[in-house]
Amino acid sequence: MQFLQQLINGISWGSIYALIALGYTMVYGVLRLINFAHGDIYMLGAMFGYYVAVFLGVAEHASGVRVLSVVLISMLGCGLIGVGIERFCYRPLRKAPRLAALMTAVGVSLLLENGGQLIFGADPKFFPPLIHTREIFRFHEIVLNNIQLMIFAVSLLLMFLLHWIVMKTRMGKAMRAVSFSHDAAGLVGIPVNRVISFTFFLGSLLAAAAGILVSLSNPKVEPLMGIMPGLKAFVAAVLGGIGNMMGAMIGGLIMGISEVLVSGYISSTYRDAFAFFILIFILLYKPSGLLGKTGPEKL
């Protein structure tokens, strides 16, 4: 019984990790860069959501349109910031050694975290309840509430949408072409820089969505909230095989579920440590990840 409850919680967190992991993996696909600032985009999503919600007075008069505006405006804002980060921080280093870009990514991450504390203040803010928690399903002690269901459903929907974009649209095909080779893509007429911007945009949208979804059930938002989920989503992406989108989704779910099980059955002290254990294990024994290079949908 308790196990089923853990599973529900784990899937819920897992979908969040999956959403963030997709951004890591897509950017890695087109740039071979680990965008360490990606977890902070998730934080910005929650922060923007908070400010937009307060500005629109959603807590006082909630309405579908207002809630949707909060979500869309924050996602769009994060999308543009993601594009800006690539344009001004990573693009000038495109031809520099890989390590330079990696260090820059760490720098951008620190900038967003500390800049966030400067601008938003270091104290946590409380995300107004956009949606009131309701039990949807109860069986003995197992409870599934509407927010957990929504996190799962929205994540699934976004992942399907992303899958469709990447597999079916010309822009998606171009993303896969760019991840194969910038030169070959340019030679057939693909505007490589525009495709890379688009990739950052999509990845940041998903991270922002994750930030807002989490804030629905964990309303405490603060500038450092992206660090841990960012790291875990990164581990999820590596676990699934970095560069592989299906891998990121599966990796995210595995991370979410296993971490909840660890804290439920062993000790919650090990919850965060477990992610690093997985990372070390994967890097030692299967660095290409579960779906590795031969996965069906290498981006």
Binding site: S181, G186, L187, G189, I190
Partner: peptide, 24 residues
């Protein structure tokens, strides 16, 4: 000019080693 702008003008290339998008 960027590579894609050159293609737009009407100059295409079949690169060395073919470089087909193997994953597509």
């Amino acid at each position: 000019m960027a590579p894609h702008e050159i293609v737009r003008l009407g100059v295409s290339q079949v690169p060395e080693g073919r470089m087909v998008f193997a994953n597509l």
